[in-house]
């Protein structure tokens, strides 16, 4: 276990090192900090002086050393646009993104497990087929398009009236297909509960929750079909295994076999995939937050790109990289702990 742990930590460390080198290369090659600091009207000689003073003429390695030391102490420099430390800017935007991810994860867990298990237990039923075809359609709809459709349906509203309104069924169909609209689809709203530090939460008021619904559903919509399909596939495989047959032969109730014996082993691979998908989720927050103008890290990153705010871009890359590395390492470790058959000392799974 210790060897596995050390190996995994070494791996994480190397990845973080590579990310920091890339980030530093971006920082030192893109944009001119002198230009940003003094503007147009300062003569070249003073610029050169300032350049020397700031150590911008030092070798790449020396400069990287300085960058890495500062980064380890949590100093990533100042954002050009906000004119404050980039870490503070990120701290301000992080809670919004985290709440979005938490809400989406809740939706995914609550819906994917029962639907996935049902589709595995009754693979041939009409409902299973329905879920499977909906899930392949769900995979094919890009997340920003889901978001736009949700806005059209529930924020703007659809007035559907191609059927003749005089007849009873026409009126009924029109009413069924039309939607009211009025759901908030812009930002986080004003009714936020202050928790601590920079964390204002949407979770503790009805108004805050209504703002959270559409973005969270959009973000969940891309992962939910993947997880339903994954859980179904794994569960089908587990149900074929010997120990399940043996449990059935012993006369254990089907309910207990499905939800206690089989589900446990189904969830193992789901954990690993879930960890990897968390990264994908961070990428999709950029899209979701753009559509809903949700003031999180993704929107901040995109705005930083438009403003060429290099220090903020670099800090975002480093912090997102850190989130990825930490979750991937944790997932591997948890997997090693819960699955005793995994080879701990050999190549990590």
């Amino acid at each position: 276990m210790i060897a596995f742990l050390i190996k995994r930590l070494m791996h994480a460390f190397v990845v973080m090192f590579v990310i920091s080198v890339i980030s530093f290369a971006i920082q030192s090659n893109l944009g001119d900090p002198i230009q940003q600091m003094v503007g147009q009207s300062v003569p070249e000689s003073q610029r050169a002086e300032l350049r020397e003073e700031l150590g911008l003429n030092d070798s790449f390695l020396v400069q990287y050393g300085r960058f890495a030391t500062n980064a380890l102490q949590g100093d990533f420099g100042y954002s050009y646009f906000f004119n404050e430390p980039t870490t503070e800017v990120i701290q301000r935007h992080l809670p919004a993104t985290l709440e979005l991810v938490i809400a989406a994860t809740l939706i995914i867990v609550v819906f994917s497990v029962p639907i996935g298990v049902y589709c595995a237990i009754r693979p041939r039923s009409a409902l299973s087929r329905f879920f499977m075809s909906v899930s392949i359609i769900g995979i094919s709809i890009p997340v920003f398009l889901t978001a736009i459709m949700l806005i059209q349906l529930f924020a703007i509203g659809v007035d559907f009236s191609p059927f003749p309104a005089e007849t009873g069924w026409g009126q009924w169909l029109n009413g069924l297909l039309s939607t009211e609209g009025g759901m908030p689809s812009y930002g986080r709203g004003n009714d936020l509960t202050h928790l601590f530090g920079t964390w204002d939460s949407n979770f503790f008021s009805l108004d805050g929750l209504t703002y959270l619904v559409l973005p969270a559903v959009s973000l969940a919509s891309i992962m939910l079909p993947l997880f339903i399909r994954l859980i179904r596939a794994e569960m089908l495989e587990v149900l074929q295994s010997e120990y399940v047959k043996f449990a059935t032969a012993k006369g254990i109730s089907l309910k207990r076999i499905y939800f206690v014996h089989a589900l446990k082993n189904t969830m193992l691979p789901v954990i690993t995939v879930g960890g990897v998908q968390l990264g994908t989720m961070v990428a999709y927050t950029i899209l979701t937050e753009t559509v809903f103008q949700w003031p999180g890290m993704g929107l901040m990153f995109l705005e930083a790109i438009q403003r060429s705010d290099i220090p903020l871009i670099v800090t975002y890359l480093m912090i997102v990289g850190l989130i990825f590395v930490v979750t991937n390492t944790l997932v591997d470790l948890i997997y090693g702990l819960v699955n005793p058959t995994v080879k701990l000392t050999g190549k990590p799974a």
């Binding site: 990845v15 590579v18 971006i26 893109l30 944009g31 990897v276 998908q277 990264g279 994908t280 961070v282 990428a283 999709y284 950029i286 990153f301 790109i305 060429s308 290099i310 871009i313 890359l317 997102v320 990289g321 990825f324 991937n328």
Partner: peptide, 22 residues
């Protein structure tokens, strides 16, 4: 493995952003 763990869309967005900046 490392590149996959960062999700392809994330890598594409970052590379795209850098190209645009360059």
């Amino acid at each position: 493995d490392i590149q996959l763990s960062f999700s392809t869309l994330m890598v594409a967005i970052i590379v795209g952003a850098l190209f645009k900046a360059v």
